[in-house]
Design a protein around this nucleic acid. Structure first.
Length: 579
RNA sequence: CGGGGCGUGGCUCAGUUUGGUAGAGCACCUGGCUUGGGACCAGGGGGUCGCAGGUUCAAAUCCUGCCGCUCCGACCA
């Protein structure tokens, strides 16, 4: 290595030594683009289903994302800790999640046959730490975070890093005296998350979310907008309402006034679907009631929505407050109602929980199954002909439904969930007895929040959102290197001398670069550079030698600039600040 | 866990129907030639055909069982 004058050499990476084994062809196992490109560009290699080795380029990207996350967490008063990956069963048994988590938890035993798990998350761990040392309101609020591997034995790992069984997460846990403190910290984290994903160069949207199995209430998810996203979201073009479809609220639709007519049973052979029955009877789908039977651990329930609507099972589950919910099988339906699915309805059903969507209660003279195979009722009137146990919003929102805030038609999009913030309140602190003494000497449970970012998923999401037919397009903030220097012909001494010189200048200026010194043809280097996604490609050919014009090409836009050697560093820095 | 598909050099795949000495392209090594968008020529290394049984003179190929991967569904950062 040549000694550079004065300044510290920050980086020394020649492509001939860089461990980034690129592939020309896409491995068959990769389905989504981020997975394909990370394999092809030599970022990751699989070791087992849902588990990957991060090769140098990926690791650099991950470290950059982590640095951004760390800076923003610290700026809000977060303090970083590291906790064991292996956690004892006892603390999970205390909160009851040892059983609740089920097969998704990686479990293991030590030589003494004691139970442990690989941490899928760290609420229990952090709370048991805090409870033993925090005694007074004076020690609160407290914000602790960690960036570590977490483990979930996913039923079906897929999409490469998007849904792995081992993944890197940042989790921050906040502990407050009261809900006011929690609200403040929640707001800080919401702000920090917006800053983080902005700095990463991602197009994202925070949406209201269901808080799911982790518990608590009040939650937002941060979604990177991408067609390949697993999550469906709705947003309002008029106001700033945005929500996961699982969460999106809907106000009941009114249906005018009609005189209730007499309930009549009609023979409707073979009409099992809403489409078939509305066609057979010549009524529109919004005059029918769709009845679905669900199996829960508490027994069978019937759920009702208007025929042209869909059920939101998350909402239904929240209303029923049950752990398991799934469509009942046909034999169970027959046993309960006497009819096969397609002909069941709420009329005449006894001793069964019936949950009706609020819109159903506004319907008049509707059609529903008669609980007799091949028969339906017409002129069904809610309140007169049946009375649900629960009336609530259990409908799934769809495009053009009215915004629950302002009534405008909502739009839909798909997103990759890269972060979620939760208000947990005292769910875990109560279970684990993490209490403090307030000013009056009274013992209170701490009020808790948790705030997660999928770091490895964020890397994948960045690729899903930023790529083209040639490869990855990194934003400068998270790119593994900012630039690659490509001498077109390594046999040309003048080119190589200039390349080394420019490479050294870049290093001294703190610009992370790779010198592609491989004895490959220019085309190969260009292809690899595009695949890996360096934001800038600095190409040295005859024009650089003869005319002092250094070609700089922007990966994202394809723009080409020519700079003189003396200005190169300034110009490159200028360019990078925009990428 | 249910339902499809697939396991053959590092990668992409052919060969399996109809058993008969394991192949191609890419990648890799050597030499030559070439040098601005994945060149070319010659030579070369590398595979117990996922694993274990079975049938057969003979199995990548047929039979049985297992394992793994992958896609679709129910779960989730």
């Amino acid at each position: 290595m040549q000694k550079s004058t004065g300044s510290l050499r920050r980086n020394n990476m020649r492509a001939s030594l860089l461990y980034a084994p690129t592939l020309r062809e896409t491995p068959a196992e990769a389905e989504v683009i981020s997975h394909q490109l990370m394999l092809r560009a030599g970022f990751i290699r699989k070791s087992a289903g849902g588990m990957y080795t991060y090769l140098p380029l990926a690791w650099r990207v991950l470290k950059k994302i982590e640095t951004i996350v760390r800076e923003e967490m610290n700026a809000k008063g977060g303090q970083e800790v590291a906790m064991p990956i292996i956690q004892p069963a006892e603390i999970w048994q205390e909160t009851g999640r040892w059983d609740v988590y089920g097969d998704e938890m990686f479990r293991l035993k030590d030589r003494h046959n004691r139970d442990f798990c690989l941490g899928p998350t760290h609420e229990e761990m952090i709370t048991t730490v805090v409870r033993s040392d925090v005694r007074s309101y004076r020690q609160l609020p407290l914000m602790l975070y960690q960036i570590q591997n977490k483990y979930r034995d996913e039923i079906r790992p897929r999409f490469g890093l998007m849904r792995g069984r081992e993944f890197i997460m940042k989790d921050l846990y906040s502990f407050d005296r009261d809900e006011k403190g929690l609200d403040e910290n929640y707001a800080k984290m919401y702000d920090a998350y917006s800053r983080i994903f902005t700095r990463c160069g991602l197009a994202f949207r925070p949406v209201e979310a269901d808080s799911g199995a982790i518990g608590g209430s009040g939650s937002h998810e941060f979604m990177v907008i991408a067609d390949s996203g697993e999550a469906a979201i709705v947003y309002c073009p008029e106001c700033n309402y945005a929500a996961n479809v699982e969460k999106a609220e809907l106000l009941p639709i009114s249906a005018g006034i009609e005189v209730p007519d007499t309930l009549v049973e009609k023979s409707t052979p073979g009409t099992k679907t809403i489409e078939e029955i509305s066609g057979f009877l010549g009524v529109s789908a919004d005059k029918t009631i769709k009845t679905l039977a669900y199996q829960t651990e508490k027994g069978l329930v019937l759920a009702l929505v208007r025929g042209d609507h869909e059920i939101n099972e998350i909402k239904l589950q929240n209303q029923l407050n049950c752990l398991h919910l799934g469509l009942a099988d046909e034999t169970a339906v027959v046993r309960l109602t006497g009819a096969i699915p397609g002909f069941i309805g709420p009329v005449g059903v006894k001793d069964t929980v019936i949950v009706a969507d609020a819109t159903v209660m506004n319907m008049h003279n509707a059609v529903s199954g008669a609980n007799k195979t091949d028969y339906h009722y017409i002129n069904v009137n809610p309140g007169r002909d049946f009375n649900p146990t629960i009336v609530a919003d259990i409908r799934l929102i769809k495009e053009n439904d009215p915004c629950p805030r302002c009534g405008a038609a909502v739009a839909t999009a798909r997103g990759i969930e890269v972060g979620q913030v939760f208000k947990l309140y005292t769910k875990y602190t109560s279970a684990l007895k993490a209490t403090y003494l307030d000013e009056n000497g009274k013992e209170r449970p701490m009020v808790m929040g948790c705030y997660g970012i999928g770091v490895s998923r964020t890397m994948a999401a960045a690729i899903e959102q930023n790529h083209d037919e040639n490869g990855i397009v990194w934003s400068a903030a998270i790119a593994p290197y900012q630039a690659v220097v490509i001498p077109v012909n390594v046999k040309d001494d003048a080119q190589m001398v200039l390349a080394e010189r420019l490479y050294q200048l870049l290093n001294e200026a703190g610009i992370e670069a790779v010198l592609d010194d491989r004895a490959e043809r220019a085309g190969v280097k260009f292809k690899d550079a595009d695949l890996i996604g360096y934001p800038l490609k600095i190409t040295l050919g005859p024009k650089a030698i003869n005319e002092n014009k250094i070609e700089v090409k922007v990966r994202r836009s394809g723009e080409v600039f020519f700079f003189e050697t003396d200005n190169l560093i300034d110009e490159v820095q200028q360019l990078l600040s925009t990428l």
